[in-house]
Design a protein around this nucleic acid. Structure first.
Length: 962
RNA sequence: GCGGGCGUGGUGGAAUGGUAGACACAGCGGACUUAAAAUCCGCAGCCUAUGGCGUGGGGGUUCGAGUCCCCCCGCCCGCACCA
């Protein structure tokens, strides 16, 4: 009996699939299914997270293919981007070489995993054949007015020496570099995504994205940040006025009567204007500009401001309100100016207290009975003397210890003239209507989302196809001159910070005649944000004409992507941009779709324990899992560990003296050193035991879970709780090494077996071993049915035992099918284990042969999406024709899903006391009688009478007794 | 602060309002072996065990609650001086 050998089987079947072009998308007229995983950045090697991601897509692709769909499951490379330039800087060479080199390595690694991918459609975004179409799209968008060039304050990342989109600034730092971002004024290109904010938001709720996880939609909703409110202007009075009125934005026009001052951002034109004449204002503006924008800075920052020498007139009361420049007002949001209502806004209240400004309550809260008054204005509500518009300051209601908070909840209006007595909900539209009627402003919708700046001052990206001419301005490169490809530059150029396209070496490329007037002109030296590359790649996979980005009919045959799978880290940027691009492409006639991805699945990360070692010198460092001996060498007692170490020292010494043999070794302490030899590549042989002797005092070293663990081999190693894999923590595993050890099938299988796919999963060697054991058990079980494919159909009249096997097979098929449909891969796998268990001692002769053939064929096919190589091997063993991956999915016979007799648990007063077996169509009366007669039940009924009997057919019986 | 999610054995996790803990990992016992590894078979929530208690805590609805409702506690994620 041969053992299953993945090392030979996996390459064999990969070649068979390749030769048969099994996974090239075909159009047979069947229903189409497009499944796509977010394509990888070619950073060098695939990591285990990739494996999990692509294994999920692969399960879906193989399953849908077996279901008869025409499946498109492509792969490509998100290949532009800064790391390539950094690699060129650090290691020499050209970004192109580095990138294509990595692609070659990673492609081989992905193929090694046996993924059902249509490689014939592969491309990298840095292929000129791809980005030429991106340039065409850009020019079309420009012509349609979706893109514009603007001088604006941009986020400048001083480390990456490039501009970042707002979305790429996290806590005031570059998302990749972590460097504090600087503000810089520049002329750059923008996609006008804000024009689409409304529809991008609407689609989140109108059913177009029903197949998306709620939390991703919520994140996008937050990001778009729609708010409805009022934009209005306060007429200004004062000397040296640069403008007659001050436009403000508010979402709380209902609180207008509570206004006690106006505020503008420190970088508001008004503040800047008075900064030039008033040193105090100038000092404040400068101070705010210098202030950090990080979250910590913001939290700490006290509400501060400086008065401007002007006032604004209240629309309803004609009161003149003071105007302050305030550090808590953002220029980028709304109009950069507000009216402040301290009684009902915490920030305004903090500010008002500091500067002694009035606090005028205008909302009387709904106070739940028995609860303390929630706001600072209790005096007001029972102080009849304070009429609307009064500037009296009811501060007496506030404590001075800062505990009292502004009341921001609902209530009814007080001291608010025409709004008095109305609820806050009613007052809001009334206030807007009034302002509109007065002609002072209008109700508006405001978004947090800003336009998407796409220019990056980098080399390794898609060039912006524009030529700048003194006379003609920004002129599109004529279509026949596309692509504007990247000029060759000396690799040495990457050692200098900044954009090589702006320097001497690229002069010949840069200086070019104006397409319009033929005068001297220069190319745009910026390249596009790499998020542009990934905003339409899914469409290009579906259709790849040479003369245009996509062919509409061909693209729409596949689009939208039925199932998109990727990491949650792209919940906002990539997914929002792709949604935006699909809309633009629709308007340019490339598709009929609004939304690119019908169903979205965000998978969890792969985590691992963290190991930390301390050497005899006291030096501490993280330790790679592969450098830690197997689990069984963790000991809890020093005696045990010492014994173990001494034995291993002997073993290592011996192995160094003699020729090594590749034998297995144990982690136990009862090892005979004279008989044990180490495998040649055993980690123990890579270290010098003498240099890192284990000592007693190190045993007491603190560990992650408070328990001492000792790694006996090299140095004590502490185990710390699982974390996201990262190179710095060294808690990474190499998927290729794992595939070598256990087979690609086992690695894929384990990544899906332990946790629900949306959750994080912990990589453990033990888990991978478990998957490996499963593969072997499947193989051994199927081997018993060698050649059974020709056994024919099972007869209708089968003995109980064989019928049981058929039932198990069909139930497993039904269950696995439903589980895959719902992304419950862990449950599907649990069912496979269970089914395999029922096939223990399977008979394969006589009557049993057709039953075994069916069961083993089902087992093979149901395992196939998870362990495709093993499945082909089993398929062949059974003697089936062709390839397992081409076979139709097992069809379930419903009659096997029901039992003739069912076991019903019987409860007495809700507690299970016994069970009865009843025919599935036994009458209610019969079941009741059986239940009461059941001995265990009867015992608990002693001395009690039946009050009620509940029979849930096929489920349960409950006797209510008392 | 706002929004979303989650809390079940030693661990990862199963349970259309109907037998809580499927399946796996780790553990324990046994078989095989000179021995170990591997493999196979079996046991396994907790307790004071013919019974009782158990799904973060407290209430409620129900014949019956991990599941539904209310309150509280804890953890994770996203957003956030957004007016």
């Amino acid at each position: 009996m041969a053992r299953y050998n993945p090392a030979s089987a996996e390459p064999k079947w990969q070649k068979a699939w390749d030769d048969a072009k099994s996974f090239e998308a075909k159009e047979t007229g069947a229903e189409k299914y497009y499944v796509l995983e977010m394509f990888p950045y070619p950073s060098g090697k695939i990591h285990i997270g990739h494996v999990r991601n692509y294994a999920m897509g692969d399960v879906i692709a193989r399953y849908k293919k077996a279901q008869g769909y025409d499946v498109l499951h492509p792969m490509g490379w998100d290949a532009f981007g800064l790391p390539a330039e950094n690699a060129a800087r650090d290691q020499g060479g050209h970004p192109r070489e580095w990138t294509y080199g990595n692609i070659a390595v990673m492609k081989e690694q992905l193929q090694r995993m046996g993924l059902a991918i249509d490689w014939s459609r592969e491309f990298a975004t840095c292929d000129p054949e791809y980005y030429v179409h991106q340039q065409k799209l850009f020019l079309e968008f420009l012509e349609k007015g979706f893109v514009e060039r603007r001088e604006s304050l941009v986020n400048w990342d001083p480390v990456e020496m490039t501009v970042l989109a707002n979305e790429q600034v996290v806590d005031g730092k570059g998302w990749r570099s972590g460097a504090p971002v600087e503000k810089k004024s520049m002329a750059t290109w923008f996609f006008k995504i804000t024009d689409r904010a409304d529809d991008l938001l609407a689609a989140l709720d109108d059913g177009r994205l029903e197949g998306w996880p709620a939390h991703v939609k919520e994140m996008q909703r937050n990001w778009i940040g729609k708010s409805e409110g009022l934009k209005m202007s306060f007429p200004l009075s004062g000397n040296d006025l640069p403008q007659d009125s001050l436009p403000i934005y508010t979402t709380r026009p209902d609180t207008l009567y509570g206004a006690s001052f106006l505020g503008v951002a420190p970088d508001h034109p008004l503040a800047k204007h008075y900064a030039s004449s008033d040193p105090k204002v100038a000092a404040f503006v400068a101070e705010c500009a210098a202030q950090g924008t990080s979250e910590a800075d913001i939290e700490k920052a006290e509400k501060k401001g400086v008065p401007l020498p002007i006032t604004g007139r209240h629309p309803f009361t004609d009161e003149e309100l003071p105007v302050y420049a305030c550090n808590f007002i953002l220029m980028q949001y709304g109009t950069g100016a507000i009216f402040a209502c301290p009684a009902h806004d915490q920030r305004d209240l903090d500010f008002a207290r500091k500067y002694g400004l009035p606090v005028k309550p205008v909302i009387s809260p709904v106070i739940p009975e028995g609860e303390a008054y929630p706001g600072p204005m209790d005096q007001a509500s029972d102080n009849g003397s304070m009429g609307p518009g009064s500037s009296a300051t009811p501060t007496s209601g506030m404590t001075d210890d800062g505990r009292v908070e502004a009341y921001t909840g609902p209530g009814h209006m007080i001291h608010s003239g025409f709004l008095d007595g109305k609820s806050t909900d009613e007052a809001l539209p009334k206030a807007i209507a009034k302002i509109e009627e007065m002609g002072w402003g209008e109700g508006t919708t405001n978004y947090r989302l800003r336009d998407w700046g796409l220019s990056r001052q980098r080399y390794w990206g898609c060039p912006v196809p524009i030529i700048h001419c003194e006379a003609c301005g920004a002129v599109p490169v004529p279509e026949q001159q596309l692509p504007v490809s990247l000029p060759e530059v000396d690799p040495e150029e990457f050692k200098t910070p900044g954009n090589p396209l702006d320097r001497e070496g690229a002069r010949a490329w840069r200086e070019t005649p104006c397409p319009s007037c033929d005068g001297p002109a220069r190319r745009d030296t910026d390249t596009m944000d790499t998020f542009v590359d990934s905003s339409w790649y899914y469409a290009r996979f579906a259709s790849q004409p040479t003369d245009k980005p996509v062919d509409k009919a061909e693209a729409d045959a596949w689009l939208p992507v039925q199932q998109y799978i990727g990491g949650i880290e792209h919940a906002i940027l990539h997914l929002l941009y792709a949604r935006y691009f699909m809309r633009m492409m629709k308007e340019c006639g490339y598709t009929e779709q609004d939304e690119p991805f019908t169903n979205l699945f965000t998978q969890g990360m792969v985590t691992h324990e963290v190991y930390k070692g301390r050497y005899i010198t006291g030096f501490e460092s993280f330790v790679f899992p592969e450098d830690v001996a197997p689990r069984s060498t963790f000991f809890r007692s020093t005696d045990e560990a010492e014994k173990y170490i001494n034995i291993w020292k002997e073993v290592v010494e011996r192995s160094k003296r003699e020729q090594y043999e590749a034998t297995s070794y144990s982690g136990g302490t009862d090892i005979d050193p004279s008989k044990t030899k180490l495998a040649k590549d055993h980690p123990l042989l890579k270290v010098d035991l003498d240099a890192c002797l284990w000592t007693y005092d190190q045993q007491n070293w603190e560990t992650g879970d408070g328990k001492p663990y000792i790694w006996a081999g090299v140095t004590p190693v502490a185990r710390f709780p699982i974390e996201k894999m990262s190179k710095s923590k060294k808690n990474v595993v190499n998927p290729m090494a794992m595939a070598d050890a256990y087979g690609a099938d086992a690695v894929r299988f384990f990544m899906l077996s332990d946790s629900p796919p949306e959750r994080d999963v912990e990589w453990t060697e033990a888990g991978a071993e478990g998957a490996w054991r499963f593969a072997n058990r499947v193989y051994e079980t199927v081997e018993k049915g060698r050649g059974l494919a020709s056994a024919g159909q099972p007869s209708d009249d089968l003995p109980e035992a064989l019928l049981g096997i058929r039932k198990a097979a069909h139930r497993t098929a039904a269950g696995v099918t439903a589980d895959i449909e719902h992304f419950r891969f862990n449950k599907a796998i649990a069912r496979l284990y269970e089914f395999l268990g029922t096939l223990k001692g399977l008979k394969t002769e006589g009557d049993a042969a057709p039953v075994a053939a069916e069961a083993l064929t089902f087992l093979t096919q149901l395992t196939a999406p998870f362990m495709p190589h093993l499945a082909e091997e089993c398929w062949e063993l059974l003697g089936h024709d062709g390839l397992c991956c081409d076979a139709a999915w097992p069809s379930v016979n419903e009659t096997f899903l029901e039992d003739d007799t069912v076991t019903l648990p019987v409860q007495v007063n809700g507690k299970r006391r016994g069970e009865i077996k009843a025919s599935k169509d036994a009458s209610k009366e019969d079941i009741e009688a059986m239940a009461l007669a059941q001995p265990d039940v009867a015992r608990f009924m002693e001395g009690k009478t039946v009050r009620k009997l509940i029979v849930v057919p096929g489920r349960i019986v409950n006797v209510v007794a008392g």
